[in-house]
Design a protein around this nucleic acid. Sequence first.
DNA 1: ATTCTGACAGCAA
DNA 2: TTTGCTGCCAGAA
Length: 118
Amino acid sequence: MPKRSSVTSADNDGFFSRVYEVARLIPRGRITSYGAIARYLGTGRSARMVGWAMNSSHTVPGFVPAHRVVNRNGMLTGKHHFGNSSTMQQLLENEGFTVIDDIVLEFRERFWDPSAEL
DNA sequence: ATTCTGACAGCAA
DNA sequence: TTTGCTGCCAGAA
């Protein structure tokens, strides 16, 4: 077993990695919520941790479609964490979503539940 | 070790 | 209806 000495949270095989793993499984053109991912991970009510993990998603090698993860309202609560406030919205619109007032209109239709799909 | 915070969600008023 | 508080778990100081 590889020892995990002083590693960053993102490198650790804990909660964070699982969140990223699920996030990468989100099909293009789909969207999900923090709570849905949290429930799939088994944490259930720790949806906040999912968002927290996303905060470190930039430390993960590869691409983590964090823009496809919004809160249960379909609101882009974390758009401010993408560098520019408009980045998240741009990415979503690029995938065919309609974002108005930081809300994804197609959220309900394009919702992708890992617990149901996986 | 203790305390605070956090990109949420649910429930009460 | 909207607004606010609580719970929840894990990581950072």
